[in-house]
Design a protein around this nucleic acid. Structure first.
Lengths: 301, 301
DNA sequence: TCTCCTTATACTCTAGCTGAGTATATCCAG
DNA sequence: CTGGATATACTCAGCTAGAGTATAAGGAGA
């Protein structure tokens, strides 16, 4: 069988959470995600990415997960005979292992997606966005119903509740409606987040959505935590990722139901009030542990 | 930046469920998954796949989802200067739209994974498999604990329950332990399912795992159903995918809680006993509808 | 025609989980 | 020693999931 030829490129969304803020590693002063060629020396895609991330940041990536592979023709700047296949990955880095986390190179997620951070309530920018989206949705009938439903669902208007997992859907709607600079239409009058090179912001949206969904059923948060941490630090990290505030007593109950962590025996009084116990992740509890969450009515037969 | 050159290949896991059996479309008498080159004429990866699947099967693919992109060096049969990137997709086809579903070309999932079908109880083959896996896990101490935990968790031994979503983990363990023919070790004495070309069975395992997980929170089953169906037909389809039997009253309760379907007003008496009402999927309820399933303790502040 | 078998459909009950709120403990600063 | 801050423990109501039971309505065959 004949097989097409293409360039292969690896794109990384490296994420760390420092001081309760989610960050992404960037190049070109925050305008692009780091990327590199996939070459023959690399054993596999994943190890290829691991190698050059380690070269560039000097620190290991704990968790690495493939996100998506793109190859739309629009993205190609090559000759007519070649095109680029971009394979994107999500990588999680521990706070301590991200020494440049304050330096340029690391930028907060919510610079690019200000409407995604609901920790201090619904962002003001959302009213402008939803106004414009509803205007965009108000076309002739066949498409109108569909558009309206998508907008209301994705942005939690009317009776729908805000669903933090829909980051990608929201970005795509805004792209379709021409509200983000990358769409290339007339520049929007509201400043809808900082744009990025090519479709890099879309890839970041994919990563955020994936991570927000994943923390609910896999213990991946701990890849972002230092060795020892307090329960509130853990909660703040989850809140940073989800862009939401959580109910403290219930968060703690959930955590120790799962038996994912154990006390170190030490306490820290750097938290302001009563000293907090330090915990560590129970590596013994292993990564394989899925938190099930079955929605099927099983029977025991 | 320099970018590596590679061949690009699209691999499809096309699935249909006919008469309560999950099938996958194959070539070479069931030994391989259909695949085709990604070429310049294609607008995008997804549309490229859609086009040649439609050409080959003559029927449209309803639902199409990217699975994974592989590029391990072992898979390459090319010259030293090229390698192949394989992008795999999961596609769902309606029962009626799969005219070849009885003909050669379509094979049951469980020919390849007999240990995955628990609809008639725990398959007998599993005792042999778990014996051999436990023998394999019984090595010197540093690795033993980890191996034992993986085996027990993936195969639901001891206190762990069988988790149908772990199809890929189970296949990978069996591969590591040399229990599947593709591993290339000494041929296993138990016949652990029908092998496939290269890593195609691994890709099929990925597809099964993804689909089993997805039916729990997205209404993708309906992509596999005919226009009108009875509740038991729907249940049998879900059971076929999950490889499990479900509790009938609870299944029905779950379905109409979600308001995903509506009565057509007609009944069918082809089911043997009392005639069953026919239902159809409420397309109005739209694909965007995620069934949430949040595991985060949200607060209303 | 009546009985039995089969499938369809409706209802009940209980344990556990989730969302929400409240109460108590222990440090630091002034 | 008092107030502010954070940490930690406990309570309670409503919902949901798992499980079981009861009734309805067709067909096949005695």
């Amino acid at each position: 069988m004949t097989v097409g030829l293409a360039h292969a490129e690896l794109i990384a969304v490296l994420t760390a959470v420092t001081q309760g803020e989610p960050k992404v590693m960037t190049v070109r002063r925050g305008e692009a995600l780091p990327s590199g060629p996939f070459e023959l020396v690399h054993r596999s895609l994943q190890s290829g990415l691991r190698e050059w991330v380690q070269d560039q940041t000097g620190h290991p990536v704990g968790y690495l997960e493939q996100l998506y592979t793109f190859a739309d023709r629009d993205r190609t700047h090559d000759s007519a005979k070649r095109r680029t296949i971009s394979i994107s990955y999500l990588g999680l880095v521990r706070e301590q292992a991200a020494p440049g986390a304050g330096k340029p190179g690391w930028h907060g997620w919510y610079e690019y997606f200000p409407w995604e951070d609901h920790r201090s309530g619904r962002p003001a920018i959302l009213s402008g966005i939803s106004d414009q989206l509803q205007a965009w949705a108000d076309v002739e009938l066949p498409r109108r119903e569909h558009r309206k439903r998508r907008v209301e669902f994705a942005f939690g208007l009317h009776d729908a509740a805000w669903n933090e997992d829909l980051t990608l859907q929201r970005y795509e709607l805004m792209y379709e409606a021409g509200l983000v600079a990358e769409a290339g239409h007339a520049p929007p009058d509201i400043s809808a987040g900082r744009p990025m090179f090519a479709d890099h912001r879309r890839i970041l949206a994919t990563a955020i959505a994936r991570l927000r969904a994943k923390i609910k059923y896999r213990p991946v948060v701990f890849e972002l935590m230092p060795e020892n941490f307090t329960l509130l630090q853990l909660q703040r990290t989850v809140e940073a990722l989800a862009g939401l505030t959580l109910h403290k007593p219930n968060f703690r109950r959930l955590i120790d139901q799962q038996q994912l962590i154990e006390e170190t025996g030490e306490v820290t009084s750097e938290t302001g009030g009563r000293p907090a116990k330090l915990f560590r992740y129970r590596h013994a509890v292993l990564e394989e542990r899925a938190l099930s969450g079955s929605k099927l009515p099983l029977s025991r037969n």
